[in-house]
């Protein structure tokens, strides 16, 4: 187990390193940042002045090392727009996005796993068809439309929930439903197909031959095996949610990471964009690491390999 963890950790560090290089390189390749910053009507001298002032005249590897060194110390640069540190800009927005991500994921899991299990026990039954339809809806309906409809029905007509902002947990209900519905289908399909495989497995027949009752057969034997890929996909989905949803945050006026990323890209605020890309990749890396640990906990074939 220790060796497994160390190996995974080493891989995570390597991935983090390469991601930071790619993130850095992509932004630099997207155009002449000095020209963009100086503006269209700037003279060549002005552009050069901006270039030198921002350190953009140095060779790329030097720029990268400089940036990476600061990043390691927690200094992700300063917003070109407001002059605030990028790190504090992100820290201010993260709670909103994290709350939204966690509630959405909780909702998605609460819906996807039971539905997937029930659907797998009765393939082609009405409940299987209904949950499949729900999954298709979840994937096909655009978030902005579904969000607006929810807002209209529950916020405007019924007045059950607030429609915008992030002051109380009630503010998160509609955006969570919106995002949760779009995160649900992949998890449900994974649960369903995993359960169908597991229920067909010899060990489930053995479990039944032992006289075990359906709940134990389903949960302790089938789901316990089917849940392994579900853990992995949940980690990926949670990463996506923590990266912020521009659409849902816009619709419900939530001031989260998605909004910040969108604004920063529009303003060419490259230190902030870089910081967000770096943070999101780190979240992915950490989540992948955690899901590896979870899978090792759940599957002795990984743990004891």
């Amino acid at each position: 187990m220790i060796r497994f963890l160390l190996r995974r950790l080493a891989i995570s560090v390597l991935v983090a390193l390469s991601v930071s290089i790619v993130a850095f390189a992509l932004l630099r390749m997207s155009g002449d940042l000095a020209q963009e910053l100086a503006g269209e009507r700037a003279t060549a001298e002005q552009v050069e002045a901006v270039r030198v002032a921002n350190g953009l005249d140095r060779p790329l590897p030097v720029q990268y090392l400089d940036w990476a060194q600061r990043a390691l110390r927690g200094d992700l640069g300063v917003s070109l727009f407001s002059g605030e540190p990028a790190a504090s800009l992100i820290a201010a927005r993260l709670p909103v996005t994290a709350t939204l991500a966690l509630t959405s994921m909780a909702l998605a899991l609460a819906l996807a796993v039971p539905l997937g299990v029930i659907a797998a026990t009765r393939p082609n039954s009405w409940i299987d068809r209904v949950s499949l339809m729900l999954a298709v809806f979840g994937q096909a309906i655009p978030n902005f439309w579904f969000g607006l409809i929810l807002m209209l029905v529950f916020g405007v007509y019924l007045r059950w929930t607030p429609i915008s902002g992030s002051d109380t947990l009630a503010h998160f209900v509609l955006p969570s439903v919106t995002l949760g519905l779009s995160a649900m289908p992949a998890i449900m399909r994974m649960t369903r197909s995993g359960m169908i495989d597991a229920l067909d497995a010899d060990y489930v027949r053995t479990a039944r031959a032992k006289g075990l009752l359906m709940p134990a057969v389903l949960v302790r034997h089938a789901l316990r095996n089917a849940v392994l890929p579900v853990v992995s996909i949940t980690a990926v989905q949670l990463g996506a949610l923590l990266g912020g949803s521009v659409v849902v945050e816009s619709v419900f006026a939530l001031n989260g990471i998605g909004q910040l990323a969108y604004q920063s890209i529009q303003r060419l605020d490259f230190p902030v964009v870089q910081a967000i890309v770096l943070m999101v990749s780190f979240i992915y890396i950490v989540l992948t690491f955690l899901s590896d640990i979870a899978n090792a906990r759940l599957d002795p074939r990984i743990r004891l390999a």
Binding site: D202, A207, H221, R224, D299, R301
Partner: peptide, 11 residues
């Protein structure tokens, strides 16, 4: 059963 490789639950 016939196949002991798959008849036991791996986890």
């Amino acid at each position: 059963f016939q196949d002991p490789m798959t008849a036991l639950n791996p986890v």
